[in-house]
Amino acid sequence: MDFSFTEEQEQLRREARTLLADRYPPERVAELADSAEGWDPASWGELAGLGWIGVSVPEEAGGAGLGFLEEAVLFEELGRALYPGPYFSTVALALPELPAELQRDVVEGKTRWSASLDGSLVPDLAIVDRVLVARDGKLVAVPAEGEALETMDSTRRLGRIAHGAEGEEVGDASAFERMRVRAFAALALEAVGIAQRALELTVEHAKTREQFGKPIGIYQAVSHRLSDSYAMTELARSLSYWAAWCVAEQDDEARVAAAAAKSYASDVAVTVCEYAIQVHGGTGFTWEHPLHRYYKRAQWIQSYGGYPAVQRAEIAAAILG
């Protein structure tokens, strides 16, 4: 049993964290989130250039031939940075289900994808080229046409796909089950990145903000919330890494692990952000402070594919019959 990332994976994490901190400081995320497009299209070429899009794509199709654990590192770091762009939609949802000839264009940064997992709402619809939908038991690629919607988390906007568009059959609908498992694992990892960042911001605040002549972190009413946030985040991290490993290994437990990780980690990210807002006081309630952006992404994750009670029902079915 070895529950650690390899040195190469840790190296990837360090590189990703440094680069993303440089490209996406909170002011930049806010600027993009409040813009009409919601992201910086030039960033996509950079991610492709870094090889992040094709991490788990086989080398024959132009990818790096690595696996979901490397992607896991990136999902966590991109979540932490609140990267606004269709990485989750393209890489977690669509890419592994595409035929090799379509994958190459994606890896090179030429096309972006999303999918309609279980309804009409499609993440990043307005900023991708094509969308995978289920039609008559088939996996069908349709153009990304439809209505862009205003969403609470403006760094990952939803759209409603137009029905009836001409499509190209690219596989069968069993792909959606794999897609859902991958999506849940990826979102759990993002949630961990978000919770970790919100906690760090709050610890820093509690160390420096003084009231009654002392840093507020000295008061247990404050510090114990942060201890709980830490504990929850670590527990969520353990579940998320488990889910990531199960997906990477195509383990029999992947489905239940991903459901457990997504439900738990998204609840944790929401709670940690709520504690963070509370501890920041009035500042945490302002539009100017970045916390609400993390909070909104955490809620986006919580809602996707059904709120956590939906995943728990799936787990109950597995353990109770």
Partner: peptide
């Protein structure tokens, strides 16, 4: 059923966190 599933998840989280600590 929901509450039992919740406890099952909490137990897995604990078990896995112990493993992470053990690896460390």
């Amino acid at each position: 059923r929901d509450r039992i599933a919740r406890e099952w998840i909490e137990l897995q989280a604990l078990r896995l966190t112990n493993y992470r600590a053990l690896t460390q």
